[in-house]
């Protein structure tokens, strides 16, 4: 019994070692790249999604090469994209067609139907710097206060805010980034806030 076990153990150990040796031989690219502020990105060669036998991936830009230069975040791509855009770290194109209208709206919406959590502040400015009005209005959100039955269940299922947040924009674990307005200290009126600047066609009507 004892000998059988030892033999089996030895065999498995040998198998494991040979697999590890094979893996070690394949290790050309490091698994992770680090930036000076301790952010970590996978290398394309070993991210388990790109095919390492595909030689073309050696030509592609590595995430860390571009992202380590951009403002720090601890989640998502490890980059604060809004800050990167606003402070000029990146200058992404706004349009391809010359006739496309660039609409940026600076107006907050405070949503108070959040049970015991802090209220949600939706800033149009940050969103319209990246997106067009038509990306959300009116197929995801009707441009009217209280017209949208948003629930966290729907958001987590990828509807409403969840179309981007949790997939491309910052993850849904970051509750406080949206639920950011404390009832105790908020003195104004909930709903659409006064417009600071922007395109008047898409302004939601304030609550009566």
């Amino acid at each position: 019994m004892r000998i059988k076990f030892s033999c089996l153990l030895l065999l498995l150990f040998a198998l494991d070692v040979s697999i590890n040796v094979q893996a070690a031989e394949k290790k050309e690219a490091p698994k992770f790249y680090f930036s000076n502020d301790k952010r970590k990105w996978n290398s394309l060669q070993r991210d388990e999604i790109h095919d390492p036998t595909c030689e073309a991936i050696n030509v592609l830009q590595q995430p860390y090469e571009a992202l380590s230069e951009l403002p720090y975040d601890y989640t998502g791509n490890n980059v604060q994209w809004v800050k990167a855009l606003r402070e000029g770290f990146i200058e992404p194109r706004t349009n391809i067609w010359p006739e496309t209208k660039i609409k940026v709206l600076d107006m907050d919406v405070i949503m108070d139907n959040t049970s015991t959590l802090p209220m949600v502040r939706f800033p149009h400015k940050e969103h319209t710097e990246w997106l067009d009005c038509e990306n959300c209005h009116n197929h995801l959100f009707i441009a009217k206060v209280d017209a949208n039955p948003i629930t966290m269940y729907a958001v987590l299922k990828g509807e409403y805010c969840g179309r981007c947040h949790g997939a491309v924009a910052f993850p849904l674990r970051e509750c406080g980034r949206c639920h950011s307005v404390l009832r105790a200290t908020f003195k104004g009126k909930v709903g659409a806030q006064p417009v600071i600047s922007g395109n008047p066609e898409f302004i939601a009507k304030p609550r009566p």
Binding site: P92, N95, W130, L131, D132, E134, V168
Partner: peptide, 24 residues
């Protein structure tokens, strides 16, 4: 890779002008 493209283009270029739906 979204990260590569959003450094060079805003979301609206592909998701509005080029007509990509925002849903896998």
């Amino acid at each position: 890779p979204h990260w590569f493209h959003r450094i060079r283009f805003r979301c609206k270029v592909c998701h509005s002008e080029l007509g990509f739906e925002m849903r896998v």
